[in-house]
């Protein structure tokens, strides 16, 4: 089986898709290194408007690496391939430009920033985004209203918003804070890297609910997860398996059930056989 071809033809072959959204993100033959070691080894993926893609795969396969490369983390070096976002060469852009173009990453490990208040952080981010898009600074009242609205959406404790960014937040609170920021920034492509891990059942529902409410026909999500359960809440159009730096299998949400049941060994075997 030629996994690359399989992957490229997903949009056409998907039984779920009668729609033909504009391609938002097109990744072709992406190779990337970290500390001189190749982690992504020829990855292809196309994400169209309105789609939700789930990416699953064993630990260390390169899922977070993909997220890092897409957001421009300087620790990762792209050696081959291309990534276009709305037709623009994404790899040419700085991390902040990518963000302001509409890419958002919910970090697997959100970062604590002592001394920088959530409010100041969010206001700066919102205003930078507005500046990038040629808009005026947000007014104080609009900003407060937006904060309140989005806090409610993810049922975030007021106290958290008054603290330094992620400082001393519990694991679950950090994840919820990621979705809060996503809601504030309203991205066109959100990448959720294991946002479900560390969340209790209620929080999982709230966070998933938040993601669903933010869904629009013109935006898209990539959801990285280890558990099929999240996909009960956030229903994917595609499920991909990332293994050893490549997408080796793509399917519908049924693939997630199959993985949950059978694990990854059969996929690894398939890959070995085709080598």
């Amino acid at each position: 089986m030629n996994t690359t071809n399989n992957n490229q033809s997903q949009a056409q072959t998907s039984p779920l898709l009668g729609r033909t959204g504009e391609p938002l993100l097109t990744i072709k033959n992406l190779h990337a290194n970290v500390n001189g070691k190749e982690i992504l080894k020829g990855l292809d993926l196309t994400v169209r408007q309105g789609e939700i893609h789930a990416i699953m795969g064993p630990n260390g396969a390169g899922k977070s690496t993909l997220a890092s490369v897409l957001t421009g983390n300087p620790a990762f070096e792209v050696t081959h391939g291309s990534v276009t976002f709305y037709g623009k060469d994404l790899l040419e852009l700085s991390p902040e430009q990518r963000a302001n173009e509409g890419i958002f990453l919910s970090f697997q490990y959100p970062v604590e920033i002592p001394g920088v208040s959530m409010v100041n952080f969010m206001r700066t981010a919102i205003n930078e985004q507005r500046k990038y898009r040629g808009l005026d600074q947000i007014s104080a009242t609009d900003f407060l209203r937006l904060m309140r609205e989005k806090k409610e959406l993810v049922e975030m404790d007021n106290k958290l918003a008054n603290r330094s960014v992620n400082e001393g937040f519990s694991g679950g609170e950090k994840k919820r804070n990621e979705i809060f920021q996503m809601a504030m920034l309203d991205p066109s492509l959100s990448i959720l890297d294991e946002t479900d891990s560390g969340l209790d059942i209620d929080a999982l529902r709230i966070v998933a609910n938040g993601v669903n409410k933010l869904k629009r026909p013109d935006n898209a999500s990539i959801v990285i997860t280890h558990y099929q359960r999240l996909l009960d809440y956030i229903i994917p159009d595609f499920v991909h398996v990332l293994y050893d730096g490549k997408i080796v299998k793509s399917g519908t949400k049924d693939l997630a059930f199959e993985l949950e049941e059978r694990g990854y060994d059969w996929i690894k075997q398939e890959v070995e056989e085709t080598r």
Binding site: G72, N73, I113
Partner: peptide, 8 residues
């Protein structure tokens, strides 16, 4: 980088 990834 976290801040940059938010557009700052």
């Amino acid at each position: 980088f976290y801040m940059q990834s938010r557009g700052i």
